[in-house]
Design a protein around this nucleic acid. Structure first.
Lengths: 319, 319
DNA sequence: TTGTAGGCGTTATCAT
DNA sequence: ATGATAACGCCTACAA
């Protein structure tokens, strides 16, 4: 339509200075008229990076992961990468299928919240950089970004102990999850150091199951006087159960949780929690990946551990 | 490596029955050994659909959109589509850039929460189906999925009126947003019908701005005795401001909001809201898009309006 | 049952 | 300053 060869069109597309302005104009006009858009797919076929990164998280409607995803998306956009979002739902098989699909689509890199289980399947994918975050992988190493789970859990448990509680239960998510394990370790360390007996109950994987678990816990002969909820989801379930039982926080049951959330400070009493920097987590993971993609970094896996922070409000018994 | 031509490899890849099993085995073995993975990009170059859909939302860390996205992701996965997630941040330019990128990557279809402003730029993209949801587009038609914004807002305002309030303010998001406009219309209709004077204040775009707006509102000579918060974000900001002022809900200020959220029933008092089916919204939008993609449907744009539901709890003054 | 030869849309190389 | 051509990895006639 512009009476030029494809080569010239390509040059116009790439702002090659040695196309005569008049020609370029003709080409551009034709493009507009035809609604022509360069085919990015064909471009990456030629060996160009796809400028796409894959993100696999467990659950997008969990605000913690939503915040991670938001940060990742921002970094991606700033660097002109597109983000393919996949949800594993904590299933290793689903995760693997997603990884497979993403690699076949030639994403340039992968960001992953690894599901529980053996990740040696990743050994076959060698040429696409991968950064794990929130949890490390089992059976495979990679760049990884974590938070101080043990320390956070230990400190907040110690805080409950300082309030004079002796029967402090920990309601956790699935024990197969790294974060549950680590927080449990921190909790147990604090309890043991104080000469107290740890009481652990599995509350996950959902708010509903946590609610049921907490209901049962409260129905026991000697219910705990304080509870450490090992994540935001569990915390909400525990809150529901306490509410169902007509009990009050912190007088009947004191409460502390892992992971802060928007409304934690609006609930009455205000919730005492360990805050983990969700946004920073995603940001660091994305940055680590981009370093590899832009070839700014090479070599051995890097591990980054972000600090957690105690947010003492009222549910623990303070104030 | 398997001593066969690329055609045979291709046939093995596509489970062509007329490859000798022994040959197929040899090929598969070679694939495994080489860590070979079919290049999905090359495949779509040949004119095959990319089995990818683009999703553009305003803000992933708003639980409402997170729930929409979750539903979309589920539908996509069930139909073996991959999802490219983009965030517009309510900026039309950002949205347009995303659309452009997605079209260049040859996504099969587009799911869009349109930003405020003129969408006639979409006129140039004709061959990729698009479904708008949460809001319709301005200056362009398309399949669209909405909720009953006016009716919901009117009903909940009427409910506040039934509680005997006369100075009922509406704190809304940006007036440029369709949902704000519609909810405002519903609110005004209810007020006018009761012979009351509407009081509108812009609270958006963030929780922080809503908090400030509400603070100012409470500092006025004749502050409202009830407030209708036009979305979840605004609601939280309003709650903060009331808290800051040391006021109590519903005695000092009655409250009702648009959009339910997980903790609305755990806050004290429990929040009265208009519930909109976020998951269903995403699901319907995705389904509408898939109908077009799978060529089950063709022809004129379809509009779907989902019902909202009053969830009367306590912040309005009930109980 | 398998191989050969295009062609998808782009870019790079080499001519002109 | 522009065009012809090969190549990226795949699929699909068509040929053998």
């Amino acid at each position: 339509m512009a009476h030029v060869s494809t080569s010239t069109v390509s040059r116009v597309l790439n702002d090659d200075p040695k196309v005569r302005p008049a020609t370029a104009e003709r080409v551009r006009a034709a493009m507009k008229r035809l609604g022509y858009r360069p085919n990015e797919i064909a471009r990456s076929l030629r060996g160009f990076p796809s400028r796409t990164i894959g993100l696999i998280i467990a659950d997008i409607s969990n605000p913690f992961y939503a915040d991670c995803a938001k940060a990742v998306e921002e970094i991606a956009r700033q660097n002109q990468y597109l983000l393919v979002l996949c949800v594993s739902d904590e299933m290793l098989d689903t995760e693997r299928e997603h990884v497979e699909l993403l690699v076949q689509r030639r994403v340039d890199g992968l960001l992953l919240v690894p599901s529980a289980g053996d990740h040696s399947y990743l050994r076959t994918i060698t040429d696409v950089p991968l950064v794990a975050f929130d949890r490390p992988m089992h059976g495979e190493t990679s760049d990884v970004v974590l938070v101080q789970n043990r320390v956070g859990a230990r400190h907040i448990t110690e805080h409950l102990i300082e309030h004079g509680h002796e029967r402090i239960a920990c309601v956790g998510d699935d024990e197969a999850l790294y974060t549950t394990q680590e927080r449990l370790i921190g909790y147990r360390a604090a309890m043991r150091a104080a000469g107290l007996e740890p009481i652990y109950r599995r509350g996950g994987p959902t708010t509903a199951t946590a609610r049921a678990t907490m209901r049962e816990l409260l129905a026991e002969p000697h219910p705990p006087t304080a509870v450490f909820a090992a994540n935001n989801l569990i915390m909400v379930g525990v809150l529901h159960a306490i509410d169902d039982a007509g009990l009050r926080v912190p007088d009947d049951v004191a409460l502390a949780g892992f992971d802060d959330f928007e409304l934690a400070g609006l609930l009455r009493p205000r919730l005492t929690v360990v805050r983990q920097p969700a946004g920073l987590l995603g940001e660091c993971a994305a940055t680590l990946l981009l370093e590899r993609l832009e070839a700014k970094r090479d070599g051995p896996p890097k591990k980054k551990v972000l600090p957690t922070e105690l947010v003492i409000r009222e549910s623990c018994g303070c104030r």
